[in-house]
Computed example of a mutant assay.
Amino acid sequence: MSDVLLCVGNSMMGDDGAGPLLAEMCQRAPQGAWIVIDGGSAPENDIVAIREQRPARLAIVDATDMGLEPGAIRRIDPADIADMFLMTTHSMPLSYLVDQLKEDVGEVIFIGIQPDIVGFYYPMTPAVNAAVETVYQRLADRDGLAQFDAL
């Protein structure tokens, strides 16, 4: 069984591009044995591709407004995603994606990166860029994502 990394976000919207930047970094220089999917701003379109992999683990990384300092990284329990008011820019809530994949995935890990500026044509802020680099480095260790503080 494989591990899938689903990177979510819109690279044209400043810090919301954290996920796509991570996918790009992994495609240039893979970390660990992750199968990387750039889910963009419509990750629900990748449900079939993820199901086909039948991953032991699915890690989802997205810019998520958690009310923290910009660049803060937190591990969020997927069961709490639907109950929390998490600000995202996606057309469907990520809880829908998680619900659709429950039967096909062994474990879901959700990693949120606190954005600072989310707006069309803004550059990514240094704090979020550094956070993406931190997540990228942790991918080399199979259990690296589990070491982030929980929200």
Results as ranks from 00 to 15, higher is better:
Leu97Pro: 08
Leu68Asn: 13
Met12Asn: 10
Leu86Arg: 08
Leu94Tyr: 05
Pro115Tyr: 04
Ile113Phe: 00
Asp149Met: 11
Ser91Gly: 15
Leu139Arg: 01
Arg142Asn: 14
Pro93Leu: 04
Met1Lys: 15
Met124Cys: 11
Leu58Asn: 10
Ala127Met: 07
Gly106Gln: 10
Ala29Arg: 15
His90Arg: 09
Ala72Trp: 01
Pro93Phe: 04
Glu133Lys: 12
Tyr96Glu: 13
Gly71Gln: 00
Met84Ile: 09
Ile73Gly: 01
Pro126Asp: 14
Gly67Asn: 05
Asp141Ile: 06
Val4Gln: 04
Lys102Gln: 12
Met66Ala: 00
Pro78Ala: 03
Val4Arg: 05
Gly71Ser: 06
Leu139Gly: 00
Phe85Ala: 11
Met87Lys: 14
Gln100Tyr: 12
Asp143Arg: 05
Ala29Pro: 06
Arg28Lys: 15
Ala127Arg: 04
Val135Trp: 00
Val118Arg: 01
Asp141Ser: 08
Ala131Lys: 02
Gln137Thr: 15
Asp149Lys: 14
Ile109Thr: 09
Arg54Lys: 14
Asp65Phe: 06
Arg57Glu: 08
Leu94Gly: 01
Arg75Asp: 08
Ala23Arg: 08
Leu151Cys: 03
Asp99Leu: 05
Leu139Pro: 03
Met84Gln: 13
Gly119Glu: 14
Trp34Lys: 10
Glu52Cys: 10
Ile76Glu: 03
Ala146Glu: 14
Ile47Ala: 13
Arg74Thr: 05
Asp38Leu: 00
Val8His: 02
Met12Tyr: 11
Pro115Ala: 02
Pro20Phe: 00
Met13Leu: 10
Pro93His: 07
Arg74His: 07
Met1Phe: 14
Met1Gln: 11
Glu44Thr: 06
Pro93Ala: 03
Val105Ala: 07
Gln31Pro: 03
Ile76Arg: 01
Tyr96Ile: 09
Leu21Ala: 10
Ile60His: 05
Glu52Trp: 13
Ala59Val: 07
Met25Pro: 06
Arg28Asn: 15
Leu101Arg: 02
Asp141Leu: 05
Thr134Asn: 09
Ala49Gln: 13
Asn45Trp: 13
Ile60Tyr: 12
Gly119Tyr: 11
Arg142Glu: 15
Ile50Arg: 08
Asp3Leu: 02
Leu151Pro: 12
Asp65Ser: 11
Arg57Lys: 11
Met66Asn: 02
Ala72Phe: 00
Gln137Ile: 09
Ala140Glu: 15
Leu21Asp: 04
Asp83Glu: 13
Ile111His: 07
Ile109His: 06
Ser41Ile: 04
Ser95Asp: 10
Ile60Gly: 02
Asp77Glu: 13
Asp3Val: 03
Asp77Gly: 02
Gly112Ile: 02
Val132Leu: 02
Glu52Val: 09
Ile76Lys: 08
Tyr122Gln: 14
Gly17Leu: 00
Ala49Asn: 14
Arg74Gly: 00
Leu68Arg: 11
Gly144Tyr: 09
Met13Val: 02
Ile117Met: 15
Gly144Thr: 10
Gln114Ala: 06
Gly9Gln: 08
Leu58Trp: 03
Ala63Pro: 01
Leu22Glu: 12
Ser91Pro: 05
Leu58Ile: 07
Lys102Asn: 11
Ala79Tyr: 13
Gly106Pro: 07
Ile37Arg: 01
Gln137Pro: 04
Ala82Ile: 07
Gln137Trp: 09
Leu139Met: 03
Gly32His: 07
Ala127Asn: 07
